[in-house]
Amino acid sequence: MSQEAIVQLGGDRFGLLSGGDASVQGGTCLLLLNAGFIHRSGPFRLHVRLARRLAQAGIASFRFDAPGIGDALARSDRPLLETMRADMDALEQQHGFRRFVVGGLCSAADLGWQLALADPRVVGVLSIDGLARTGWWYRWARLRRLLAKPPAAWMQSLKRHSRRRAASSMSAAELRDWPEPGVERGQIKALVERGVALMFLFTGGAGYFLHPRQFGETYGAASKAESVQFDHWPQCDHTFFKETDRRKLIEHLAQWMTRRFAP
């Protein structure tokens, strides 16, 4: 495994390139985007461990901070999408990478999705707890969960639900950077037609995703394409608190990356 290298991105921004020679890797690099405000090493060092696992398989990855997060001290007025595309330019110019897999957990999945739509260099999207709609199957799963509890617990659940609704009147769709409902169907179709490989994983920590059939309900017919992988891990939490869950995730992602992008 080659040593990780520091890559300057301009201003006070930098990142760490793991496993890296574009000529050996076939020019593909996984961009691990910030999960919310967590800096580039990821929740519980997830990005570091994933990067090193991928490097063993000969796959390059790059972890870095968006402006205003982690070590990128200065915030920026520039649209984030533009900044990310400029970072891809820097990796192309300095290290020869011309194809990128983008995404990550939560907000990283949202940004990865937008980046894939905006830039033809993106050949893969990694979406963990990304976009999903709360339609029929969500309501069915909620009802089923409630009925599985003893009647005495029903009132408690309803009260808790009311309290949460009162505390935050914003839905997941409003809190996240998601397109208008229905738009995602056309977007996934365009990505599939472009040959972009898509990996979706939803955890039990995504409170808006309770039933695996929500996936097809959200994304429509294109969700069944060969290039789309979908998994639902309801036993895991949103940030993979358990070490065993983290190991399982790293192996799962490494296998997908290897199958799709290994040189």
Binding site: F44, R160, G204, P234, Q235, D237, F241, K242, E243
Partner: peptide, 27 residues
């Protein structure tokens, strides 16, 4: 507390031996 949290898990996790080798999720 985290393993029992309904915010984190739909069903509370038991305190398994494997978790005793971690501190707040870290090995």
């Amino acid at each position: 507390v985290e393993r029992q949290s309904s915010e984190r898990y739909a069903h509370p996790l038991p305190d398994l031996a494997e978790d005793m080798d971690t501190v707040m999720g870290f090995p």
